[in-house]
């Protein structure tokens, strides 16, 4: 699919969205006259809008993301509708705040600079029941949203080494104090084996973790797992390869995806450097 074809699709779907918005406004006017007249129109407008939006995201997102990704990742596989399994997200303890719902999408896998990598957009939500006076309502609060990355590494550890800044919420592993007071102030390292924690968290790796945190500019979660993978999650509060309502020009979308990918690959580079 070339740029012109993509722009034609965007223009077509954007027209549909505008039509949906107009229909919605018309429905609102009808509501003033009579709710029974207005409600079906508004529902129809919603359906039209979200169908157009979904189609746009699928087609354009897939084409542009694939193009951008294939420039950097070998043996690329990209699937907008899949992600890491819930079992994996649950079993790799990152120190996330409490959650009861997992949503994964935009799954990417391949080889980057000789390392096998996998990543996806992850959203964790917690269902909370809020009561105010006589009424109670259920809220779905997002506790984490951002990229979840897995990188293959060849160090063997007997138990996972978790590095997080939200240590007090962790219930697994013992707190390990490394020799750097500065690092201990900013991060908490949890592991059942003190030796494994020191083996992974070399002074060089400590520097890289600090650098990843600065570069990420958001809360980070790291787990050097004993399954041969390092897991890194960044609570950036947005999906990496999602189109926004405002996206219309292919070049702009490509530029945004390229920037997003460079950001993610920069984090992977830092981590890979620490693992050297």
């Amino acid at each position: 699919m070339n740029g012109t074809e993509l722009e034609q699709i965007i223009a077509k779907e954007n027209k549909r969205k505008l039509l949906a918005l107009g229909l919605g406004a018309f429905g609102a006017l009808l509501m003033i006259i009579h709710p029974i007249l207005g409600i079906p129109v508004i529902i129809g407008a919603f359906i039209l809008f979200f169908v157009s939006q979904g189609r746009l995201k699928k087609q354009v997102g897939r084409a542009v993301a694939f193009k951008v990704l294939s420039g950097h990742i070998q043996d690329l596989s990209f699937d907008q509708d899949s992600g890491f399994s819930d079992e994996l997200i649950d079993s790799v303890y990152m120190g996330f705040p409490g959650y009861d719902n997992i949503k994964c999408g935009d799954y990417i896998s391949g080889s980057y600079k000789g390392r096998a990598i996998e990543l996806c957009d992850l959203e964790l939500t917690e269902t909370r029941v809020v009561s105010s006076g006589k009424t109670t309502r259920t809220e779905h609060v997002t506790v984490f949203q951002g990229p979840y990355i897995s990188i293959a590494y060849d160090k063997e550890v007997s138990c996972p080494v978790t590095v997080t800044r939200r240590g007090n919420l962790l219930k697994r592993g013992s707190l390990v104090k490394l020799e750097s007071e500065e690092f201990n102030k900013s991060f908490r390292v949890y592991c059942e084996s003190e030796h494994d924690a020191f083996y992974i968290m070399t002074p060089h790796m400590m520097e890289r973790v600090e650098s990843i945190y600065e570069r990420a500019d958001h809360e980070i979660y790291l787990n050097f797992c004993n399954d041969g993978h390092v897991y890194l999650a960044v609570d950036s509060r947005h999906d990496s390869f999602e189109l926004s309502l405002m996206d219309s020009k292919v070049e702009e979308i490509e530029k945004r995806f390229e920037d997003e990918l460079e950001y993610l690959l920069g984090l992977i580079d830092e981590l890979a450097e620490g693992l050297q």
Binding site: K177, E179, E194, H195, D196, F198, Y199, T202
Partner: peptide, 17 residues
Amino acid sequence: EEHLQAARRVYNANVRE
């Protein structure tokens, strides 16, 4: 050697404490 380096650091951290 990496394991030895880790063991040294663990020892020194415990001695320091």
